[in-house]
Computed example of a mutant assay.
Amino acid sequence: MKNVTEFRITVSQQVLDDLKHRLQNTRWPGEADGSGWAFGTSEAYLKNLVHYWQTSYDWRKHESLLNKYPQYIADVNGIKVHFQYIKGKSNNAKPLILTHGWPDSYYRFHKMIPLLTEGNQSFDLVIPSIPGFGFSEKTALSSEAVADLWKVLMTGNLGYEKFYAAGGDISMNVTKALASKYAEVVAGVHFTDVGYPMGQEDPATMTEAEKQFAGFVQQWWYAEGAYAMVHATKPQSLAYGLNDSPVGLAGWILSFINAGAPAEIIEEAFGGRDALLTNIMIYWVTQSVSTSMRMYKADAIAQWSGAQPLKKTNVPAGVALFPREAQFPKEWAERSVNVVSFNKMKEGGHFAALEVPGVFADELRNFFYSIK
Rank of each mutant, 00 (worst) to 15 (best):
K2C: 08
N3C: 08
V4P: 03
F7N: 11
R8E: 09
T10A: 14
V11A: 02
V11E: 04
L16H: 00
K20P: 00
N25F: 08
G30I: 08
G30C: 11
E31V: 04
E31M: 08
D33G: 06
G34I: 13
G34C: 05
G36N: 14
Y45D: 04
V50F: 12
Y52V: 07
S56Y: 09
Y57P: 06
Y57W: 07
Y57L: 08
D58E: 11
K61T: 14
H62P: 04
N67Y: 14
K68E: 15
A74I: 11
N77A: 15
Y85K: 13
Y85Q: 13
N91I: 01
N91S: 04
A93R: 12
L98P: 04
H100S: 15
G101I: 05
P103H: 01
P103C: 14
D104G: 12
Y106G: 02
Y107P: 09
H110D: 04
L115S: 10
T117A: 10
T117F: 07
G119L: 13
P131Q: 11
P131N: 14
G134P: 12
E137S: 13
L141H: 03
E144S: 09
L149I: 15
T155L: 00
G156D: 15
Y164H: 10
G168E: 07
D169H: 13
V174Y: 02
E184A: 11
V189G: 03
H190D: 02
D193M: 15
Y196E: 13
G199W: 10
Q200F: 15
T205M: 05
T207G: 15
K211E: 04
G215Y: 10
G215T: 12
F216D: 07
F216M: 13
Q219F: 13
A226Q: 11
A226H: 03
A228V: 04
M229G: 05
K234W: 05
P235V: 00
Q236W: 06
Q236M: 04
L238S: 11
L242D: 01
N243M: 13
D244H: 11
D244I: 10
L249Y: 09
L249D: 12
F256C: 00
I257G: 02
A263M: 00
E268T: 08
E268I: 04
F270E: 01
F270R: 03
G272R: 00
R273G: 01
T278P: 05
M281P: 11
T286F: 10
T286L: 13
S288F: 07
S290V: 01
S292L: 02
S292N: 10
A300P: 06
I301V: 15
G306S: 15
K311P: 00
K311L: 10
K312I: 07
V315T: 14
V315C: 03
V315G: 01
P316F: 12
A317R: 00
L321A: 15
P323L: 07
F328S: 14
P329K: 09
W332Y: 12
W332F: 11
S336V: 05
V340M: 03
F342Q: 05
G348P: 07
V359M: 07
A361S: 14
E363F: 13
L364S: 07
L364K: 08
N366D: 15
N366S: 15
K372A: 14
